[in-house]
Design a protein around this nucleic acid. Structure first.
Length: 479
RNA sequence: GGCGGCGUACCCAAGUGGUAAGGGAGCAGUCUGCAAAACUGCCAUUCAGCGGUUCGAAUCCGCUCGCCGCCUCCA
């Protein structure tokens, strides 16, 4: 069964056939590290994390590179404002980004190149472009000449003349064409620089990705990803310079782009002041709830972030782990029993088909929750009939969860792990809560329900929910 | 102006030719001291609107309305 992916280049879903059978090369544009990463970065990271995991799950040997842009105008500007060294500032935010990625349960890519560690290759590619006439040097700057590439604009569906009539392009007298873009920039005094054939300077934005891609993955890669906004000009320019440098077409076989995250129906932007950092989201919600929220829509669709939608995701996550907890308690013999869910055509096949269809995680999640309902129903039936039967079915369901967690990166923990993370947000110390539970249960024994309810309501006001189960009272943090 | 996308219940969201997944909210019931959780039942004769193709359309085509993104640094 082939995997199908939507290719931005052809604007169609295509059968995924990597250049080299059995292995996949994948490059995703990472962050420019000058501030904390926001929920939009999280979406891109989670989307491609799932794609990476799924390709591996399907048996491909995947080389995955995600870069850090650690030299750039914004970094230099921010460093100047803070009176910091640009290099030190970039390193600091790389660390912050890595922490956010870890908090979101994102697997570490095979390679995490930095622009500043790829200068040699950047200069080589630039030199090649100058030598073959695709680029020209002026006063220590090097520009790529868009007119030299006949198919410039093929990814974004634009043509050069339309773009120029748009007149939003800044005119630089030294450029042969307003759309020409910098491969190499002369450094101003005090800015970081590297020696080059054109004098001291630093790389332009687009060239670094081409250089890193070629350095780590080769001249043609299978998948190149990033946010939709990168299609133009960034990825368009990457194609132009890479194909001009290597003479090989295509530079990228499948272009994948994730949709945006809006905040309460508005675009996230600095002017609106509604930038939502990953850090702040993960502080208030479990990481799996955040991932569930992001994966509940297709990766190409826009999604709208709101506190309500995160709460819903958290409620759903809780439903999942409560069910798991119940299976563990009522069917302990299922633990460790592994059923091969892929061995026969079955319900798991539907999940794989959904993933094969352009990574439709939303449908997969729907299927998972169908199984959650089914498991609860079976347990209720067993309880009602007094027959402890159907062990295989529970093992099958648990195995499906486990299997899906490998590529979704959710549904894979133990209930204890999940609730520990969640309950670590409690505003009261656990000991204090336990003490109140004991006090309340004494009251209940003495039929002093007024006092019992007082305690329960008091805790609820602090965000602690009590549940009286067959095995005693448990508490959790309100979602 | 150019290019692209979207419109499915109260909210979120799959489904892209065979008769509407899933989550959340709500209502009723079982359970409970009462709750909570879980389960059961109810909750879109209908997929923005209007035409067309078809035995059959939310799915394909045309038009209309509404919303959004990119074209400038941006995930």
């Amino acid at each position: 069964m082939p995997i199908k992916v939507y290719n931005s280049l052809t604007r169609k879903k295509e059968e995924f056939v990597p250049v080299k059978e059995g292995s996949v090369t994948m490059y995703v544009c990472g962050p420019t590290v000058y501030s904390l990463s926001h929920i939009g970065h999280a979406r891109s990271a989670v989307s491609f994390d799932v794609i990476y995991r799924y390709l591996k799950y399907r048996g491909y040997k995947v080389k995955y590179a995600r870069n850090y842009t650690d030299v750039d105008d914004k970094i230099i500007k921010r460093a100047n404002e803070e009176g910091a060294d640009p290099k030190e500032l970039a390193e600091r935010y790389i660390k912050e980004f890595d922490d956010d990625m870890e908090a979101l349960g994102i697997e570490v890519p095979t390679y995490r190149p930095k622009a500043t560690e790829t200068i040699k290759e950047i200069i080589e590619v630039t030199k090649k472009l100058v030598d073959n006439g695709s680029a020209y040097a002026v006063d220590g700057d090097v520009y790529y000449s868009v007119r030299k590439k006949k198919d410039y604009g093929k990814l974004s569906g634009k043509n050069i003349d339309d773009l120029e009539s748009g007149a939003r392009v800044e005119v630089d007298e030294r450029k042969e064409d307003p759309l020409d873009f910098a491969l190499w920039k002369t450094s101003k005094p005090g800015e970081p620089f590297w020696e080059s054939p054109w004098g001291p300077g630093r790389p332009g934005w687009h060239i670094e990705c081409s250089a890193m891609c070629m350095r780590w993955l080769g001249e043609t890669v299978d998948i190149h990803g990033g946010g939709k906004d990168l299609i133009f000009p960034h990825h368009e320019n990457e194609i132009a310079q890479s194909e001009s440098a290597t003479g090989k077409t295509p530079y990228v076989k499948y272009w994948l782009h994730n949709g945006f995250v809006n905040i309460e129906k508005e675009k996230m932007s600095k002017s609106l002041g509604n930038i939502l950092n990953i850090r702040d989201v993960v502080k208030d919600h479990t990481s799996e709830a955040v991932r569930l929220f992001l994966l509940s829509s297709h990766y190409r669709s826009p999604i709208d972030y709101s506190e309500d939608s995160l709460r819903e995701a958290e409620a759903a996550m809780e439903r999942f782990y409560k069910t798991l907890q119940r299976i563990n308690a009522e069917w302990p013999e299922t633990s460790g029993v592994d059923v091969c869910v892929q061995c026969n055509e079955g319900r798991f096949t539907e999940i794989l088909q959904a993933m094969d269809d352009d990574f439709n995680t939303a449908e997969v999640i729907g299927n998972i929750f169908k199984e959650v309902g089914k498991a609860n129903r079976l347990m209720d039936e067993a309880k009602a009939s007094g027959k402890h039967e159907g062990l295989i079915e529970f093992s099958y369901i648990l195995s499906m969860f486990h299997e899906a967690s490998e590529f979704l990166g959710i549904f894979g923990r133990t209930p204890e792990e999940y609730f520990n993370e969640k309950n670590s947000r409690a505003v009261l110390p656990a000991g204090e809560i336990e003490r109140l539970i004991i006090e309340r249960n004494d009251a209940r024994k003495n039929k002093d329900f007024k006092r019992a309810d007082e305690i329960r309501n008091g805790l609820l006001e602090k965000g602690i929910v009590l549940e009286d189960g067959a095995k005693g009272t448990t508490w959790s943090v309100k979602g």
